[in-house]
C-alpha cells in the first residue's frame, strides 16, 4: 500500500512536470512570432538574425526538455 502511494505521487508529479512543456511551447512560439513580425517589418535584416532566432529557440526549448526529463525520471527512475 505504501509503495502504491509513492508510485501514485510519482505519476502525479510526472504529469505536473509535463505542464512545463507548455511553458516551453509558449516561449518558442514567442521567439518565433517576434522574429517573424520583425522580419516582416524589415525583411532585409531577417536573414542575418536567423541564427540568433535558433539560439533563442534552443534556450527556450531546453527548459521544456528539463521538465520532460523530470517527468521521465519520475516515471522510470525514482
Amino acid at each position: 500500500m505504501e509503495g502504491d502511494i509513492v508510485q501514485m505521487g510519482a505519476y502525479i508529479g510526472a504529469g505536473l512536470a509535463c505542464t512545463g512543456m507548455g511553458g516551453a511551447a509558449v516561449g518558442v512560439g514567442h521567439v518565433v512570432g517576434n522574429y517573424i513580425s520583425g522580419a516582416l517589418r524589415n525583411p532585409s535584416a531577417a536573414a542575418s538574425q536567423t541564427a540568433t532566432m535558433f539560439i533563442g529557440i534552443a534556450f527556450a526549448e531546453a527548459l521544456g526538455i528539463f521538465s520532460f526529463l523530470v517527468a521521465l525520471l519520475l516515471m522510470f527512475a525514482v
Partner: peptide
C-alpha cells in the same frame, strides 16, 4: 547540462 540534455531529450522524446 542544457547542451547535452537538449539533444538527448529531443531525440528521446
Amino acid at each position: 547540462v542544457s547542451h547535452s540534455i537538449r539533444l538527448a531529450g529531443n531525440m528521446m522524446a
